[in-house]
Design a protein around this nucleic acid. Structure first.
Length: 594
RNA sequence: GGGGGUGUAGCUCAGUUGGUUAGAGCGAUCGCCUGUCACGCGAUAGGUCGCGGGUUCGAGUCCCGUCACUCCCGCCA
């Protein structure tokens, strides 16, 4: 028998009546009646009420003990009387009468209460993460994360995938995010980089003939944080398969996601066969390539309406003449909404940096008219045309945004979410997955006007190699896809380009010479010329999946030891300065910033 | 790098138009209480109002600067 406990704090019930037990755990809560003291003892498994009265020699000492101290209790299980049963607790049928106790770990005054649902300032939570993690909600989130990862692992093995580790110290890659660098002691002046993803390695694993690979892979990118993006590091379910087409990857991932989300959530999956939306369609209909499909609102293009002579809304007409686009969102049956509903949204849009959202409502007396500040600028014919394009009906309202290509999408996409939230159109008890497919291979940089890879330079372009028109690179689509759930981008993947010649060609379009490609991607380009199988894969983000399952808006709520927004670990005090000796060994010196 | 929000007791917050000695709940300390499960009751301690400067007879409150945390934009093949 273990000297600390015979049972944990979540397992005793009335079947154990009269048993002598040892329990060890944290003092979650005390209720002191002066001559009678209740102690809620907590561990990972639950809470057990322990009780002692003044007849005991230990009474005075226990009365004084701090919350969150760790103690061992030697006691007797006693069935509670009917009136005192607590149905909120798994162990609520019994309590443990304390015979004696021992302090195992004393606790000093707490910087934050553990037993509370209150929210606390982030810096205190992060500095005392070990205390924060004792709290119920986050404790459960972290356990969920563990279970999710275990489940994914067993599913992937079931599907015939093999798990491999890939290096953490690797080489810097020119594409993508900023790298974290690690100086090399043995190679002065040279640096390793932490992998942004095991991209090249997983392709090499395919070239090596392992057929199906996966890994719960840490990825490191030195980019600024967001609520759903940790600075520094995050985890992906990295997977890659040989001799596959896009559909084969989809099949595996859909199966995994459906099984995973069904197992760990009670929310409904909107469609178990995930809808496929082309990048182009997503951008016009939703204004984003990560649409929330729980949101029924759709964006319509009304640019042509503003070239008509019977539309007099000059502000938009002028902008359209100079190349701007007009996009619209229809809200059903909102004719009776208060003026403030519309103005709030207009005001919000202005705060978002747009020029606001124009709006009116379709009405009909003798003829169709538009009610609202800009209603008078539209003829009946033009209104009919708008209603035809947008499938709007009398009583519906329309929000209009005008802006340059690439900018108008941004505001309409945000407006789509905002309006749906205001009207309560989002079903919170649903997961709506979709695939975004047919990404363009290249895009034009808005500032430098240069052609660059729009996503992943290793993706396979669509179409027959001999028939691709490389003179019109912006028309080339790639076998590149994203999976999106409830507006959260879970991952992107691609069928890879395994033909070196084609790779050189694509890189040259993006402005990289053959020499440069050979140098920067030597490992891979070399490998591809020794008999590479066609292959493809994807890498769903583990943290974001757990966020969705735990119903959390912030990635730190599902991360055990996250860094703050400035990429500092407040508990470990990282990053930190290092000894001069260490720097010298690495041939580094610090340039002091003025 | 830019924009927004927040910063008052150990924790969560209130603090009116600038006006006397800055408050509450939880926690802490002390006392009372034998059936609570957010136990109850009473008392005590606890404050550089983030920091610096300014306006004013007078600043937690107004102005300028600065720092920290956070959300967003940029960035994230």
């Amino acid at each position: 028998m273990n000297k600390f406990r015979t049972h944990n704090c979540g397992e005793l019930n009335k079947k154990d009546n009269n048993k002598k037990v040892f329990l060890s755990g944290w003092i979650n809560k005390k209720r002191d009646h002066g001559n009678l003291l209740f102690i809620d003892l907590r561990d990972n498994y639950g809470i057990t009420q322990c009780v002692i009265d003044k007849s005991s020699n230990f009474f005075k000492e226990l009365e004084k003990i701090q919350l969150e101290s760790v103690i061992k209790i030697d006691g007797l299980v006693v069935e509670r009387t009917k009136e005192t049963i607590n149905n909120e607790l798994k162990t609520g049928e019994i309590e443990v009468k304390i015979i004696s106790f021992k302090i195992l770990g004393e606790c000093r005054e707490l910087p934050m209460p553990i037993f509370s649902d209150q929210e606390y300032a982030e810096d205190i939570r992060l500095k005392y993460r070990f205390l924060d993690l004792r709290r119920k909600k986050i404790h459960e989130n972290i356990i969920l994360r563990s279970k999710v990862i275990a489940f994914i692992r067993s599913e992937m093995l079931k599907y015939g995938f093999l798990e491999f580790q890939t290096p953490i110290l690797t080489s810097s890659s020119p594409e993508g995010a900023r790298d974290f660098l690690v100086p090399s002691r043995l190679n002065p002046g040279k640096f390793y980089a932490l992998p942004q993803a095991p991209q090249q390695f997983k392709q090499l694993i395919m070239v090596a003939g392992f057929d199906k690979y996966f890994q719960i892979a840490p990825c490191f990118r030195d980019e600024d944080a967001r609520a759903d993006r940790s600075p520094g590091e995050f985890y992906q379910l990295d997977l890659e398969m040989s001799f596959v087409e896009q559909e084969d990857v989809f099949e595996v991932v859909e199966k995994l996601m459906v099984n995973l989300f069904k197992k760990f959530s009670n929310k409904k999956i909107k469609s178990e066969k995930f809808q496929k939306i082309s990048y182009e369609e997503a951008m016009t209909k939703y204004g984003t390539d990560k649409p929330d499909l729980r949101n029924p609102l759709i964006i319509y293009d009304l640019t042509n309406i503003f070239t008509r002579d019977d539309v007099k809304f000059d502000i938009f007409k002028k902008l359209v003449k100079s190349g701007s686009k007009v996009r619209a969102i229809i809200t059903k049956n909102t004719k009776d909404k208060a003026r403030s509903f519309f103005d709030t949204i207009d005001k919000w849009a202005k705060e978002e940096g747009a020029s606001g959202l124009a709006y009116f409502t379709f009405e009909k007396d003798n003829k169709i008219s538009a009610k609202g500040p800009i209603g008078k600028f539209f003829s009946e014919d033009s209104l009919k045309e708008i209603m035809k394009i947008t499938e709007a009906e009398i009583g519906d309202s329309i929000f209009l945004a005008c802006g340059k290509d690439g900018e108008v999408e941004k505001i309409t996409s945000l407006a789509r979410d905002k309006i749906a939230n205001q009207l309560n159109l989002i079903n919170e008890n649903e997961f709506a997955f979709c695939w975004i497919v047919d990404y363009p291979m290249f895009e034009k940089d808005l500032i430098s006007k240069k052609i660059k890879f729009s996503h992943n330079p290793f993706s396979m372009p669509q179409g027959d190699y001999n028939k691709i028109d490389f003179n019109k690179p912006l028309n080339i689509k790639a076998y590149q896809y994203d999976i999106v759930c409830n507006g959260v981008e879970l991952s992107s993947g691609a069928i890879r380009n395994h033909i070196p010649e084609l790779m050189y060609k694509l890189f040259s379009i993006a402005g990289y010479e053959k020499k440069h490609v050979d140098q920067k991607f030597s490992g891979m380009i070399n490998a591809l010329s020794y008999g590479a199988p066609p292959h493809g894969g994807i890498a769903p983000g583990i943290d974001r999946i757990v966020m969705l399952l735990a119903n959390e808006k912030n990635i730190r709520e599902v991360t055990m030891f996250p860094m703050n927004q400035n990429a500092q670990d407040l508990m470990m005090e990282a990053p930190s300065e290092v000894d001069l000796e260490q720097l010298k060994e690495l041939n580094l010196s610090i340039v002091k910033k003025k």
